[in-house]
């Protein structure tokens, strides 16, 4: 059984797309996550507030997206995602908002 992830897409004008992600992201469903990140937008906002698990494959997808355009990642400061952002230094290539 693959990990379950749910991604909602909201387009904010032509420039900006917002992804609201809930569930777990691992090797089994990272392709789905990557596809969502490939959406065409000048600025991509990814809200990981509902993510309970993410592994290095998921983080790699974020890095790849950051290489192609402006990326903003939102997460909860107390969540599992927050330390991973620091460990992998995603914070060096994307705008991070923690609340």
């Amino acid at each position: 059984m693959s990990a379950e992830v749910h991604i909602e897409v909201a387009r904010d004008g032509a420039e900006s797309v917002m992804l609201s992600v809930t569930g777990e992201i691992d090797l089994s469903n990272v392709g789905h996550f990557r596809a969502a990140l490939d959406l065409d937008a000048a600025t991509l906002v990814v809200d990981l507030g509902g993510v309970t698990y993410i592994d290095s494959a998921g983080m790699a997808a974020l890095f790849d997206r950051a290489r192609r355009g402006r990326l903003e990642v939102r997460c909860q400061a107390s969540s599992v995602v927050s330390p991973l952002i620091d460990i992998t230094r995603l914070c060096d290539v994307a705008v991070i908002r923690r609340d």
Partner: peptide, 16 residues
């Protein structure tokens, strides 16, 4: 194939 991805995995294991 993807060295940075694996390196990142090890880094995560170490850090945690």
């Amino acid at each position: 194939g993807r060295t940075d991805e694996r390196g990142r995995g090890i880094a995560i294991m170490r850090a945690l």
